[in-house]
Write a protein that binds this DNA or RNA. Sequence first.
RNA 1: GCCGUUGUAGCUCAGUGGUAGAGCACUUCCUUGGUAAGGAAGAGGUCGUGAGUUCAAUUCUCAUCAACGGCUCCA
Length: 645
Amino acid sequence: MINISFPDGAVRQYAVGISAMDIAKSISEGLAKKVIVAGVNNQIWDTNRPITADCSLKLFTWNDAEGKNTFWHSSAHLMAEAIEAKFPGVKFWVGPPLDNGFYYDIDLGDRKITEDDLTDLEKKMNELAKQNNVFIRAEKAKDEAIAYFTEKGDEYKLDLLQNLEDGNITFYTQGNFTDLCRGPHIPHTGYIKAIKLLNIAGAYWKGDEKNKQLTRIYGITFPTQKELDEYLHMLEEAKKRDHRKLGKELSIYTMNDEVGPGLILWLPNGTIIIEELEKLAKETEEAAGYKRVVTPHLAKENLYLTSGHLPYYADSMFAPMEMDGEKYYLRAMNCPHHHKIFDAEPKSYRDMPYRIAEYGTCYRYEQSGELFGLMRVRCLHMNDAHIYCTKEQFAQEFKAVNDMYLKYFKIFGIDKYVMRLSLHDPEKLGQKYINEPELWLETEELVRNVLKESNIPFVEVKGEGAFYGPKIDVQIWSAIGREFTLATNQVDFAQPRRFKLSYTNQNNEPEIPLIIHRAPLGTHERFIGFLLEHYAGKFPTWLAPLQVKILPISDKFLTYANDVKNTLVKAGVRVEVDERQEKIGKKIREAEISKVPYMLIIGEKEMTENKISIRRHSKGDVGQLSVDEFVLNIVAEISNRKSEE
RNA sequence: GCCGUUGUAGCUCAGUGGUAGAGCACUUCCUUGGUAAGGAAGAGGUCGUGAGUUCAAUUCUCAUCAACGGCUCCA
């Protein structure tokens, strides 16, 4: 007998060789039906794998991440079986589970697959699922496995085998499909009741664009049709929040073929939001001791050779213009210009920290396939500033920047984000990163300490740093799940040296400053894209392009309506009167659709009492106020930048 | 840049080898209406662009541009 201990602390005895499934059955049939995979001594095991020694045991169901991962991993195998049936002789790379669903990377050889094929594949998968084929685990010796795939001519699995140790190699077979696989898997294919293959994509082998491109098929499966339907419905709902859709519906921005891809034309409504954001940034930065500067959008080639950007980023800059034998580049970043401003006049320690800010316009030639609404564009307006400081001042300055982020996030009600400490990758020193290993470690530790001392939760990621230093990135996810850096706070120990920047210290000696690059509000493009999705288009009053819409019941009340409007305009409120000869129901409907925060309804009653009836967007009628009271309230709401009434 | 998909009116979309249609929006008229769509009439498109096949192309083929779903990239 062996002792099995359970998560609740209980220990029970079972016969040697019993499986997790049998143990589940011994507890209850209901549990056994739900169990997908087992955790044996914190390793994930097949439920039918014999347990031969004392261990701790957890039983995972669909409701556990382990259950879902296994379910989707098995689904990838099921899809591979269907693909192999439809396209015999194709070769498979890997087919992992994702946060939502799974994919498999396939080398189709000369064959092509189109979206029409997906329906066939789904059909085949359903057919195979219904066969309740058991996933059979087989351990093989490495040379045996190599022989198997050599005979098959499968260079992909042979490549995988290279990195596996002998003695740890397992194969899984379900139905007619056998794959090299660590496992584990669901008990049998019949668990998969609902299948949707989502899309086809090219994916470079091992994620390297120099490698061959494989075909990747994405799919998702569920234990019930209902859950699949709900998932697909959720995707549809997410699309309604997509900033590209809202940006069009709310007339925020547009693009034009003749202007060019990735070049945003801000419509009047979007421009109002831009100006409100700039107002906020200017107030905040002025209070924090920043000075404002203005610099040109382009510079001669040499500036970017000095900064070191050109060798790293030439491909993502617009091609240079040649004038009078000089090459001029549209700038992809503002920092070199700012460094020249720092250097324009001699600095002493008394001038430090020296903080200069600018909403800088930059141009980046993003690859055509990378453009994405407002989130990835080719002309962007950055909430940029550079802080030149002494080493002693660094921690305090860096922390002040982080605090500024948090202040902004509070204003916008941003709580779903991840702070990422982006570090260098030692293997890419000299290629992607300035070759100063000690300065890297030193500044990374500085930044880490600031985060720790501020009690800000963060994750560390290697290989995401800027070429000139480590940074903190604020990661967010768009409505459809793409990840973006919203804001960034970076240390730079490289450019001060390259630009020979210095200040005079107390001992009358030149010293090299540190630089902080920071953009808490990111770029207008990305930030407004994010805000559109964050608020689902329902901007708080201070940001709403139109804050109040006055809706007269009939044109008998137009004069009074315009009096109210003029009072509001004088108070600095953005207001319009709906003067059309439409019924009030229609005027309300259209104001609701355009997401105006306040609707003022004006008719006989209001006019005689010198009042207004107030309707809040998506909340309905909230009663009457005198015009003066309403003006006081809304002006306070706007000036406090309240995010919820 | 690469793989796949799409491109018809301002928007959302239907449709056809014989030079186009709906709903909403827009304009005009009627209606003066109390918290999410009152009625009628009208105007609006060389079907992304270029070439080819054909007696004839918006429809088929190719190229190209752009957008979308991914990959790669993201200072």
